[in-house]
């Protein structure tokens, strides 16, 4: 165990302060190291190679560069993001409305909660192949896939957010003769905003999963097509590059939304990280 000995260099007690390495915080340093380590392992595994279908990191990055230069990557993302934006917007408008309604009204909750809980818990992705029969393989089908995956999360988060609004704040507002309308707009909605926004963030991530899945399963367009096309012609480095951008894109998107969430809705969380 710990030695209880007089020594001056032990001043930094149990409160672990971050140290600086190469002018950055040590956690950032180790994160960057871990990224490079992963790429190095990827490169080595590709050079062995562990499988004919496993290109090296460098050739994957080369393929990525090719696709960025000839505009294929840009076009693919434009194609993929359209249904995502439309689907998430629709889910956000209706999802937040239904969720908030459920939080405020017992009948709404009675009617909507079970169906959304079932949708949230069940593998609705199984239904994606069916969408083709109803909506063809165009933008609509992809948008429906996005809504199917994004809406339940947004609804349930909005509902929980309103449900968990601090009761003593509500009573405070009531005791100062706030009307029901004032209670909702000045207390319940503002205090629910952070969780509602967190739900939107999760909805965007889920919607992205939905659109990629739709592109892989039913409509060979966008980024999903980059993946399946290059797989079918065995240009694996291009396929891996496309998968790589999908993961990277989702990480950046979710990261930015998290930053926005902390900045605008949870300033108290800033220091905790």
């Amino acid at each position: 165990m710990s030695a209880v000995a007089p020594s001056v260099d032990k001043i930094s007690g149990p409160t672990k302060k971050s140290e600086k390495i190469l002018g950055m915080t040590d956690t950032l340093f180790y994160r960057i190291v871990s990224v490079f380590a992963l790429f190095a392992i990827w490169e080595i595994a590709g050079r062995i190679p562990i499988s004919v279908a496993f290109p090296t990191f460098s050739s994957t990055m080369g393929a990525l560069w090719d696709m960025i230069l000839d505009g294929r990557m840009f076009n693919a993302y434009a194609e993929t993001l359209k249904p995502l934006a439309v689907g998430v917007s629709i889910s956000a408008v209706f999802g937040v409305a239904i969720g908030v309604g459920m939080g405020l009204n017992r009948l709404m909750q009675w009617f909507w909660e079970p169906i959304f809980v079932v949708l949230q818990a069940s593998p609705v992705a199984a239904l994606i192949p069916l969408i083709t029969y109803a909506y063809g393989i165009g933008l609509t089908a992809k948008t429906v896939a996005v809504i199917m995956l994004a809406a339940p999360i947004i609804v349930l988060n909005s509902y929980k957010a309103v449900r968990n609004a601090n009761p003593s704040l509500i009573q405070m507002c009531q005791s100062f003769q706030g009307t029901r309308f004032q209670v909702i707009w000045q207390v319940i909605i503002p205090s629910a905003a952070p969780v509602i926004f967190a739900g939107l963030r999760l909805g965007v991530a889920a919607g992205f999963i939905g659109v990629i899945l739709a592109e892989l399963l039913i409509t060979p367009t966008g980024v999903g097509d980059l993946i399946s096309y290059h797989r079918s012609v065995a240009e694996y480095q291009y396929m891996y590059a496309a998968v790589f951008t999908v993961i990277l894109f989702s990480a950046i998107m979710v990261g930015l939304l998290e930053v926005a969430e902390v900045k605008y809705f949870r300033p108290e969380k800033k220091k905790g990280h």
């Binding site: 165990m1 209880v4 020594s7 007690g13």
Partner: peptide, 14 residues
């Protein structure tokens, strides 16, 4: 907590 041995001292002993 220092006496309990749950915290380290900066200087001194128990």
């Amino acid at each position: 907590k220092i006496i309990a041995g749950l915290l380290e001292t900066t200087e001194g002993e128990v």
